[in-house]
Simulated assay, not measured.
Amino acid sequence: MTAVALTQDEAFARIRLLRSANIGPVSYAQLLHRFGSAVEAVAALPDLAARGAKRNYKPAPREKIEREVEATRKARARYLFHDQPDYPALLAAMEGAPPIVTMRGDIALAAKPCVAMVGARNASAAAVKLARDFARELSEEGFVVVSGLAKGIDGACHEGAMPATIGVIASGIDIAYPPQHAKLQEQIASEALLIAEEAPGTEPRGQQFPKRNRIIAGLAMGTVVVEAAPKSGSLITARLAGEAGREVMAVPGHPADSRSQGCNQLIREGAVLVQSAADIVELLSGFDGQPRSSVQEQGPGWLYNESEPEVSADSVVDLLSTAPVAVDELVRQTGGTHGAVQMALLELEIAGRLQRHAGGRVSLG
């Protein structure tokens, strides 16, 4: 999307739009395309929700957004919008990339070659040392190390790479988590780059960590997993990286150590085995700055033209269940245009009746 100069009113409306109930990255983008501005989109939300069978829908209160903006200012942070020139290009290519983040520090770090490093919170002493050494060596080779400020591997990576590091947190920009890393988080914000998707004041909750993980994977050309148990958050980050066409790397470990089972599983499934920072540098040296496979951006082509036959929200609901289905399948079965079906889905989502899934699939909410 072409970069634009935002007025204060439009920037405020964008934050308000994203903070309104049932608005996610996909519906946010569709609403901006549909109405041309967040000011117009916010005004249209109650009518769209009513068309999806939800009455009395109200956008996020202005007073709440005013308090958020003041809290962001007080935290010495600033907003970064999806179509501003310094929004990281690789992150923008991720499916469901955050339309707005808050940040402290040097955003220019995100434009440099980045590698994500993640791993276990209860990591072994040997793995912590290896992660710190890898991160330091990668920073010396000109890479920026991205991680999630968790205990164990994440913290070691940030410390080793400082100040060539980016911390991505699941809380608001003004909340230190875990508390033991408050000093490290402030150091990253002051000397490197700290990024948060949630509003200031937001305490970390379980569902926010996978969202944080997609940002970690999205910022980087590749993700390295140092030590991880099966079904850990680190494996979610690796999966998201792979789905986005980025490199996935893992450090092998002893099969008897449960903390190595996740890494060994990744290698068995096709991740690249790495045993040194030089292995990582060699693998990423051929990366040209573009994902090996990218998610297609939803442009104006999906939009509903009012001269087209309408597809009602109820007719789409009749085809939906709790099992995710591709939007293209709904287009085929309704006989409507892609834009008309997307418009019906948007109405259902704002009404809280629709859930979106990876790969452009939807289900009943």
Results as ranks from 00 to 15, higher is better:
Ala5Met: 09
Asp9Arg: 08
Ala11Asp: 02
Ala13His: 03
Ser20Pro: 03
Ser20Asn: 02
Ile23Asp: 05
Gly24Trp: 01
Ala29Cys: 10
Phe35Cys: 10
Gly36Val: 00
Glu40Gly: 06
Glu40Cys: 10
Ala50Trp: 00
Ala53Arg: 15
Lys58Pro: 01
Pro59Asn: 08
Glu63Cys: 01
Glu63Thr: 13
Ile65Ser: 06
Arg67Val: 05
Glu70Asn: 11
Ala75Thr: 02
Ala77Pro: 10
Arg78Gly: 12
Phe81Thr: 06
Gln84Asp: 12
Pro85Asn: 12
Ala89Asp: 15
Ala89Val: 13
Leu91Pro: 12
Ala93Gly: 04
Met94Pro: 04
Glu95Pro: 03
Gly96Pro: 04
Ile100Cys: 00
Met103Val: 15
Arg104Cys: 10
Gly105His: 07
Val115Trp: 11
Val118Ala: 01
Val118Trp: 07
Ala123Gln: 08
Ser124Glu: 13
Ser124Ala: 14
Lys129Asn: 07
Ala135Trp: 03
Glu140Ala: 09
Glu141Cys: 13
Gly142Val: 05
Val144Asn: 11
Val145Cys: 08
Val146Gly: 00
Gly148Tyr: 02
Ala150Leu: 10
Gly152His: 06
Ile153Ser: 04
Cys157Gly: 09
Val168Tyr: 00
Gly172Lys: 01
Pro179Asp: 12
Ala192Phe: 03
Leu193Met: 06
Glu198Ala: 15
Glu198Cys: 13
Gly201Tyr: 07
Arg205Glu: 14
Gly206Ser: 11
Gln207Cys: 05
Pro210Gly: 00
Arg214Leu: 03
Gly218Asp: 02
Met221Glu: 07
Thr223Gln: 10
Thr223Glu: 05
Ala228Ile: 10
Ser232Ala: 08
Ile236Leu: 01
Thr237Gly: 13
Ala241Cys: 09
Gly245Val: 09
Val248Phe: 15
Ala250Gly: 02
Ala250Met: 04
Val251Leu: 15
Gly262Ile: 02
Arg268Val: 06
Asp279Thr: 04
Leu283Cys: 08
Leu284Asp: 07
Gly289Asn: 13
Gln290Pro: 03
Val295His: 08
Gln298Leu: 14
Trp302Phe: 11
Asn305Thr: 06
Glu310Tyr: 13
Leu320Gly: 13
Ala323Ile: 15
Val325Phe: 00
Ala326Thr: 02
His338Thr: 07
Gly339Met: 15
Gln342Asn: 14
Ala344Lys: 10
Ile350Glu: 09
Ile350Val: 14
Gly352Asn: 10
His357Asn: 03
Ala358Gln: 10
Ser363Pro: 09
Leu364Pro: 00
